[in-house]
């Protein structure tokens, strides 16, 4: 019985403390770097596209709003021929970032993406690709993958032996 009135009193007291609401357009909140907002495609430290078009982000996307097509350059390096995110469907769950084996796709704290036309919410690769490494500096998938690409011969990746000479008879 007394606790009821105590509850009322506590609630009343809360009416006179500082507000927690941030009045957004006038005052911009500082979003933490891991905040899940606008999706970008990053580049590796050497400036190459990080995305290798493995299709894992599109597979994991629960609203199926990522579509891409893999292509390969003359030296065997994979890249997406097109990479499209339909942000009018995106729920910013971050599963694509989690699935990405190369740190290419990242969610950034950008949240101001409103458009008056839904069609403008469809982002192509040109709109997504940034020129930096994003949240993950230093990683370059092709330095650990066994695939041969331009500028990296077989056996030149990290933790690899030089290619085997099959005609060698030494034990």
């Amino acid at each position: 019985m007394f606790s009821l009135f105590k509850g009322l009193w506590i609630v009343l007291r809360h009416a006179f403390v500082k507000r927690v609401t941030v009045e957004y357009p006038e005052k911009k909140p500082v979003l933490p770097p891991r905040c899940r907002g606008r999706i970008i495609l990053s580049r590796d430290p050497d400036g190459g596209e990080r995305c290798v078009a493995c299709h894992l982000c599109s597979a994991v996307c629960p609203v199926a709003c990522i579509a891409l097509q893999a292509a390969e350059d003359a030296h065997g390096r994979r890249y997406p021929k097109f990479f499209r995110i339909n942000f009018s469907r995106c729920i910013f769950c971050g599963l694509c970032e989690e699935a990405c084996p190369t740190y290419a796709i990242q969610l950034t704290p950008g949240v101001e993406m409103g458009e008056y036309k839904r069609q403008h919410l469809v982002y192509e690769k040109e709109d997504l690709l940034i020129s930096g490494v994003g949240k993950y500096p230093g990683y370059n998938f092709y330095r650990v993958a066994g695939l041969q690409i331009e500028g990296k011969d077989k056996g030149a990746a990290e933790n690899e032996q030089p290619p085997v000479d099959v005609r060698d008879l030494m034990p």
Binding site: H55, A59, A64, A67, F82, R84, V122
Partner: peptide
């Protein structure tokens, strides 16, 4: 059941 990109593959033409 894992088919991906349903809501994006035609979005370059129309988002609907």
């Amino acid at each position: 059941h894992r088919y991906s990109g349903r809501t994006a593959m035609g979005a370059d033409v129309s988002v609907h």
